[in-house]
Design a protein around this nucleic acid. Structure first.
Length: 817
RNA sequence: GCCGGGUUGGCGGAACAGGCAGACGCGGCGCUCUCAAAAAGCGCUGCCCGCGAGGGCGUGUGGGUUCAAGUCCCACACCCGGCACCA
């Protein structure tokens, strides 16, 4: 029982009433005691981290976690702690039930906003970030969260960076063996293996050399390669690799971005700047190798369906077939010979007999060379009015490349295109069909080329209608297509008009027909069943300062060399100017320039990496913000561990599939609470890293997060005056009926986020001061279900205050104490 | 268009397994305390009719199942979120 507070006002309030002042006194006292006693220390089954008073681990392990915060300069508003309060309540409940609860909070401290804040304030990002973390710690401690304070860390801590870089090197030093059996619970085919094993197998000749024809028996092909060629083969197989392909270049941010960071209308998620496709040499991670496992293992985890479906959508698995069409030479070239082949991907190989033309993306390499003249039978509508295919194709390519993502979306449905002059041979019936280029076919998906079946696909049908191309229906529903049917028929049915001398699909259902035609294509070696994904490899390098440097140097042959583990971490150097080099947001021709490149002494180093001192160039990129958050859950197990990101025994105890089964058959964190905005970013990347670590034997759980819960957002009202300027929401008076006013003038109410610029921020500090942390916590938990978004109303908080007062009165006499 | 989630008083929301709809909180009204106000406490508060007793209506809309439906089934409308020319 605390002493009665000094009376600070002249009221006649009872001495022992539960007032904000008394609440604060109680809260601070207990917060100090919890810290002193280590009340919320979670006990590891081994090692230095024991429970309160040195107690050993007892009860079922229960690992509960929040998506860790980004220490922004603005400090917290009342929306931020919502999830932390919820996990605290759950964690305390489980602890009371006898579980060994692990609950801690670290800080995700690299990244663009921290860097931008530092640039604005003219201070080094480390200075501002550390100050922000301190402020956030203070605000959160006052909330009274039952966290284990020994387990906190920030992603910018050099010891944390060491292990982030170490994991990067594990990925860099791995390749994906699609045929290898996975051991243990991950059973199936395909896993990451150390790159050294690839080299051994190539040298021994037990594996063909990728990208090189020829029989590698006894390592014959391998032996014929120079050391540089060998390194190129190896580097081409790594799970972290550098290559030059179209990437998202964002001049406004001065960096390239991952697909997941670009919105559907072609802008950066952060800053909303235009993003351009450019061929640039960048680091990527081979997440596509894990596409199937990332999709399939969603069945093993307890996540909201919404998030699962977003991930499935993003991965975008389609099962179908690749089919190769011969492209014939035209009259002026070589009328007899084939000019090449055109490979397409289709999910409906059963409709091959209905393919009456082909379409390739404007960027397709087939268009680099086109026939000199229009072939016989070319219709004027196909040529775009040009004299030659070359002119027509060039004009269309120009047009297409000038289109922005927004324009392209707006035009979706309207079909434009032009005949390329090429003719392809439909392998099932020998018919020569025209090859068009059109922007409704995307280079980034499948093979960038399709067989068009206007009888079975609405887009192809629209194109066929616009360019007067023949329509053949090869699938009909039971009872046939209705009289006068127009448009494509994409439904179930049986194959018709689908037979040649060797194979007949007629009468088969869609699934059987697919299987039959794939068998035939494979027997003729002109196609095979295959699976295509929408997911692309993860673009992993950024041209910014405030991130983890790549633990890689480049040798005199311009090949990447890993920094040995013993030399980690590679610290961020001091550079004269850490500001990113940004550009006119619309200037697509600008070139990225990494701030780390501004320090020649750092960039050019002499190192002894095992074969004597040599000079190298450091990699000047930094990792994306996601790197640190890809594995932080592992670091809570013991942030001071010096031999591994996390000890195997601890990982098994806290994350392994287990007994109380709260985390499900895949293991992972028992409860992970955070916003839905990371559905295809952090949550996909972290799953990918975890599976690589699993393959390499560093973890035993199949998934990092067994159960996920998305909390809603606390929203708020904001008010604008007649000029549209925001006015301080706290000073607005009135209600819905009588209208709202600020300083006597009427204002407009809007509903949305809480934010500085909207002048409607309410801070936890104000709540501690006016009501106490417990009232604040009760209010947030009683506003409504956690997964819903709802409005903050400061005046409603008093209800929770009265509730606690009533509770208090039931236990304590307000007059006597 | 496809996928996911919703729709209950003036407002946020509750109703767990089909069993008294509207818990709890805000707001509103009345009262107590006070010279007064604030704070706090007590009572009332879904809508309509009625002085009242009381009556009627009521969970987006229309149907259905059931002794009984916010809850189950069918159809529709609207709102929010995600994806979208992905072959």
């Amino acid at each position: 029982m605390p002493d009665a507070p000094e009376r600070t006002t002249s009221t006649d309030e009872p001495r022992f009433r539960y007032t904000p002042a008394l609440a604060q006194q109680i809260e601070l006292r207990w917060q100090d005691l919890w810290e002193e006693r280590g009340t919320f220390h979670a006990a590891n089954p081994q090692g230095r981290l024991t429970g309160p008073g040195g107690s050993p681990a007892q009860g079922d392990p229960y690992f509960i976690m929040d998506m860790f915060p980004y220490p922004s300069g603005a400090g917290l508003h009342v929306g931020h702690p919502l999830g932390y309060i919820a996990t605290d309540v759950t964690g305390r409940f489980r602890r009371m039930c006898g579980d060994n609860v692990l609950h801690a909070l670290g800080y995700d401290a690299f990244g663009l906003p921290a860097e931008q804040y530092a640039v604005q304030t003219g201070q080094h990002p480390r200075v501002t970030t550390e100050a922000n973390i301190l402020n956030m710690r203070r605000q959160l401690r006052r909330l009274g969260l039952g966290h284990d304070p020994r387990r906190t860390f920030a992603t910018i801590d050099p010891e944390y960076v060491r292990w982030t870089q170490w994991i990067f090197l594990q990925i860099f030093d791995s390749w994906y063996d699609a045929d290898a059996e996975r051991p243990g619970p991950a059973a199936g085919k395909g896993r990451a293996r150390p790159i050294a094993e690839l080299r051994e197998e190539l040298a021994a000749g037990t594996r063909p050399v990728p990208g090189h024809d020829g029989d590698n028996t006894g390592g014959a092909v391998w032996a014929g390669l120079s050391e540089l060629e060998r390194r190129d083969v190896i580097d081409g197989q790594r799970l972290a690799y550098v290559d030059s392909s179209p990437v998202n270049w964002c001049p406004g941010l001065g960096t390239v971005l991952a697909n997941e960071e670009v919105t559907a209308d072609g802008r950066s998620e952060r800053g909303n700047f235009p993003v351009f496709q450019r061929n640039l040499r960048q680091w990527k991670m081979r997440i596509t190798a894990y596409a199937d496992r990332l999709a399939d293992d969603l069945d093993l985890i307890d996540w909201p369906d919404k998030v699962k479906s977003m991930q499935r959508n993003w991965i975008g698995r389609s099962v179908g077939a690749n089919v190769r069409f011969d492209v014939v030479g035209t009259a002026d070239q070589d009328p007899a010979g084939a000019a090449g082949t055109l490979e397409v991907f289709t999910t409906r190989p059963d409709t091959l007999f209905g393919a009456t033309f082909m379409v390739v993306a404007p960027e397709h390499p087939l268009l680099d060379e086109v026939p000199a003249a229009w072939p016989d039978g070319t219709r004027s509508a196909w040529t775009g009015g040009y004299e030659t295919p070359a002119e027509a194709v060039a004009a269309y390519r120009r047009e297409a490349s000038a289109k922005t993502a927004v324009e392209r979306q707006a035009d979706a449905g309207k079909k434009t295109g032009v005949f390329t002059g090429h003719l392809a041979v439909n392998p099932v019936n020998g018919e020569q069909i025209p090859v068009f280029t059109a922007d409704y076919v995307l280079m980034g998906y499948g093979t960038g080329a399709i067989m068009a079946v206007p009888g079975g696909d609405e887009r192809d049908h629209a194109f066929a209608e616009a360019y007067d191309l023949p329509v053949v229906y090869t699938v009909e529903p039971e009872g046939g297509l209705p009289e006068g049917h127009t448009g494509a028929y994409a439904g179930e049915g049986v194959a018709v008009r689908s037979a040649n001398d060797e194979i007949s699909l007629n009468g088969l259902g869609v699934a059987e027909a697919k299987a039959a035609i794939i068998g035939w294509l494979e027997s003729k070696n002109i196609g095979e069943g295959t699976t295509t994904y929408r997911l692309n490899d993860w673009l992993f390098s950024r041209q910014r300062y405030w991130g983890e440097p790549f633990p890689v140097v480049w040798d005199e042959d311009d090949r990447p060399v890993a920094i040995p583990d013993a030399m980690l971490p590679v610290d961020l150097p001091d550079v004269p100017d850490y500001a990113p080099r940004t550009f006119d947001p619309d200037d697509a021709t600008s070139e990225p320039e990494a701030p780390l490149g501004r320090n020649d002494e750092w960039v050019n180093v002499t190192l002894d990496l095992g074969d004597g001192p040599r000079t190298y160039r450091r990699d000047t990129n930094t990792m994306p913000n996601w790197a640190g958050s890809c594995w932080y859950y592992l670091r809570y197990l013991d942030p001071a561990e010096t031999t591994a990101p996390a000890l195997a025994g601890l990982e098994q105890y806290w994350l392994g599939p287990r007994h109380n089964a709260t985390s499900g058959p895949a293991g992972g964190v028992d409860l992970y609470v955070g916003g839905v905005e990371h559905a295809v970013l952090h949550l996909l990347y972290a799953r990918f890293w975890h599976k690589v670590l699993l393959d390499l034997g560093h973890v035993t759980s199949l998934e990092p997060f067994g159960k996920l819960f998305n909390q809603g957002y606390i929203q708020a009202y904001a008010y604008t005056d007649s000029r549209g300027q925001y006015v301080p929401a706290a000073e607005v008076e009135g209600d819905e009926q009588s209208g709202y006013t600020w300083q006597g003038q009427p204002v407009n109410r809007e509903y949305g986020k809480m934010g500085k610029s909207l002048k409607n921020v309410v801070t936890p500090d104000e709540m501690y001061e006016q009501y106490g942390a417990d009232t604040f916590r009760v209010y947030e938990m009683s506003m409504g279900p956690l997964d819903l978004s709802r409005p903050w109303n400061t005046r409603d908080v008093v209800g929770s205050q009265r509730f606690l007062q009533r509770l208090w009165r039931n236990v304590v006499d307000e007059e006597t104490g």
